[in-house]
């Protein structure tokens, strides 16, 4: 039996990748909101509430590496994923707009950005949150020999 330090290294890398995705998403959201000036709709705000803290929480779990950060970060990421899925459903026309809480100001069903005809912001949000959830779950089970 030769215990190697690699599992912890892998855990750290997985967590770091999750942090990278959260930071990229946060800066992207801030860019679209603050620089390009598109006011976020209500559903976007709820997703922001789940995404922004991940940048700080995950960073705190990296130094020193603390696998238990998954317990604190996963609920945020999971709730964010649910809201993102709902929002994506609204923009894709699967869920009618009127059952959404978007009565004030900015409608949630408008596509601010559309790349290649189908990549919208809610879809990017779904991808970010599910990547983070996946990486966090992997980090949790990546116990190995330590």
């Amino acid at each position: 039996m030769t215990p190697t330090p690699i599992p912890q290294q892998t855990g750290w890398t997985l967590l770091f990748l999750a942090w990278l995705v959260a930071t990229l998403s946060t800066l992207g959201a801030l860019f679209i909101g603050e620089v390009m000036g598109h006011a976020p709709c209500i559903l976007c705000w709820y997703q922001r509430i789940c995404m922004f803290p991940l940048v700080l929480v995950l960073a705190a779990g990296l130094f020193p590496f603390d696998r238990r950060v998954v317990r604190y970060a996963l609920p945020l990421a999971a709730v964010g994923l649910l809201i993102a899925l709902f929002h994506w459903g609204v923009t894709a026309g699967l869920i009618p707009e009127r059952v959404t809480p978007c009565s004030v100001g900015v409608p949630c069903s408008v596509d601010v950005i559309k790349l290649f005809g189908f990549v919208t912001l809610p879809l990017l949000s779904v991808l970010s949150f599910s990547t983070i959830v996946g990486l966090l779950v992997l980090t949790h089970f990546n116990k190995g020999a330590q």
Partner: peptide, 21 residues
């Protein structure tokens, strides 16, 4: 080093944000 990797990633992302802005 992990901290170097983390800090350079943070700096690169922030710089990209500011440049984009």
């Amino acid at each position: 080093k992990k901290s170097t990797l983390f800090i350079s990633a943070a700096v690169i992302l922030l710089a990209a944000f500011v440049a984009g802005m």
